[in-house]
């Protein structure tokens, strides 16, 4: 289905990893928001958002990243973004997200960034 979206939560070396798949738009953004909120409620403040299978993002999806980042950083954590495909990366870049977020190639790299502090 053209509007399918899923978020899968996992953990790597004690760091939360949310893997996104499909289309992240105004219809599916609440699912993503809920998934991040769940991690925060569980006390996790180091979160990797893995986007290798994310094929589409609109500003509704970008807004979810924006609405949590300050809260997480204030708590001493961060959101790192990994594996973004070129089509989605272009959308991040149009709005200047690369200057606000740490965007890396893959999950191990994102985890390593957290471990380096």
């Amino acid at each position: 289905m053209a509007n399918s979206f899923s978020v899968t939560a996992s953990e790597q070396d004690g760091i939360a990893v949310l893997t996104l798949e499909g289309f992240l738009d105004a219809h599916t953004a609440p699912q993503f928001e809920e998934a991040i909120q769940k991690e925060i409620n569980a006390g996790r403040k180091q979160i990797v958002i893995h986007c290798e299978k994310l094929t589409y993002i609109s500003s509704a999806g970008l807004g979810v990243f924006m609405s949590f980042i300050e809260e997480i950083r204030d708590a001493g954590g961060d959101i790192k973004i990994s594996g973004v495909i070129p089509k989605v990366l272009q959308v991040f870049e149009i709005l200047g997200f690369q200057s606000l977020f740490d965007i890396v190639g893959n999950v191990p790299e994102a985890v390593a960034r957290f471990q380096q502090g």
């Binding site: 970008l62 924006m66 200047g96 997200f97 606000l100």
Partner: peptide, 18 residues
């Protein structure tokens, strides 16, 4: 500025900007 929106925890207006 995007940075300002983040500081204010607002994401409104992104669609029009896009």
């Amino acid at each position: 500025e995007l940075k300002r929106l983040v500081e204010e925890r607002r994401s409104g207006g992104l669609g029009m900007r896009m």
